[in-house]
């Protein structure tokens, strides 16, 4: 932009002030504060003064050796994997169906709206709703299974650790597959249509097109979905907290619920909760660094592609010119 006597650049700074201020006060400062508390003896309700520990990494050692924390970490990953694998598979299948040009599926708009719906409902509500569904001895799930003849007697699903984990994973799956599907479909729609035309002309069937054209081109979006889902999964709080309060026997205790319990219920161990938060912060930072790297990579790849297309056009033009020259 040209400067015509007036220097507008200063407005760039002025307009960013609210964002920067809010970030410094509500995000950066609490982050540093959390990090500092992780090295102190701050605990107890209503206390704000603290002293640094003689052994600076004392809280981290305690947390890393805490069986509940170890369990919460492994629970978080197990629940995430149990939810993500079926979620991405179903989303991919639906994407393949909905983007197939030859097999026009009617009512896609309605399907999208219905599949995405659970995602906007308050997670707290859904957790308690599912808790009621698995009621024992009388609850909708027990009634349903009994009337279908799958089980003879009501079963108390919520006292079995793996069943409870499975249900939490199912709820996450149910809430998120619609979102993942819409993201993947928009990824496919954003691809160059020539790719699909070419595979059509080459006589590829639906499966071949999907596996050899669509999937390889979706790679970046798939990795992006994977990592953002993992970052989201590491913060799973509402569902495990309200569905079974982390139980039975810590089977659905996730890291976020662990941090919450350490800091805000019972013992008010702010220092240990901070140490655990900091560990999570580092895991998430590494993962987001990875996303950032991929997205940069994507831009670079896009640029390369554009250059290649330009070169091709250029060569074509040269050829045309030669042909014309011969004709003349």
């Amino acid at each position: 932009m040209k400067r015509k006597g007036v220097n507008y650049a200063k407005y760039g700074y002025i307009f960013c002030i609210p964002f920067v201020l809010a970030f410094l006060v509500f995000s950066l400062y609490p982050t540093i504060y959390t990090a500092i508390i992780g090295f102190t003896d701050l605990k107890g309700l209503g206390k704000t003064d603290f002293q640094f520990l003689d052994n600076p990494f004392g809280n981290f050692e305690l947390i890393l050796n805490n069986p509940s924390f170890q369990k919460s970490l492994s629970n978080t990953f197990i629940i995430w994997i149990l939810n993500f694998i079926p979620q991405i598979l179903l989303a991919l299948i639906l994407t393949a169906w909905f983007t197939n040009n030859r097999r026009k599926i009617k009512g896609q708009g309605v399907f999208k709206v219905m599949f995405y719906m659970p995602n906007i409902i308050t997670a707290a509500t859904i957790a308690i709703l599912f808790n009621s569904f698995f009621g024992y001895p009388m609850g909708p799930v027990n009634s349903l299974l009994q009337s279908l003849g799958i089980i003879d007697e009501p079963s108390n699903f919520l006292v079995q650790g793996w069943t409870a984990k499975g249900i939490v994973a199912f709820i996450q799956f149910w809430m998120w597959y619609g979102y993942t599907m819409i993201v993947l479909i928009s990824g496919v729609l954003g691809m160059n249509p020539e790719l699909f035309e070419a595979s059509d002309i080459d006589g590829a069937n639906g499966f071949q097109t999907f596996f050899f054209v669509t999937l390889p081109n979706l790679r970046t979006i798939l990795i992006y979905t994977l990592i953002t889902s993992l970052i989201g999964g590491l913060q799973m709080f509402d569902i495990p907290r309200l569905f079974l309060l982390g139980g039975p026997d810590n089977a659905t205790l996730t890291t976020s619920v662990f941090i919450y319990n350490q800091a805000f219920s019972g013992s008010y161990m702010y220092n240990r909760a901070s140490a655990a938060s900091l560990l999570m912060f580092f895991i998430i930072a590494v993962l987001s660094g990875f996303v950032f790297y991929i997205m940069r990579d994507k831009h670079a790849a896009k640029l390369e592609k554009e250059i290649r297309i330009q070169q091709r056009e250029f060569k074509k033009a040269l050829k045309e010119n030669k042909k014309m020259g011969r004709d003349v």
């Binding site: 609490p30 508390i37 970052i231 913060q235 800091a263 901070s274 938060s277 999570m280 998430i284 993962l287």
Partner: peptide
Amino acid sequence: MVIMMIPAQVTSIGFYQFMY
């Protein structure tokens, strides 16, 4: 872009203490 992914949840202890 860098701060986009930082979740408020992992800094909640510092945030709470600050607000308190």
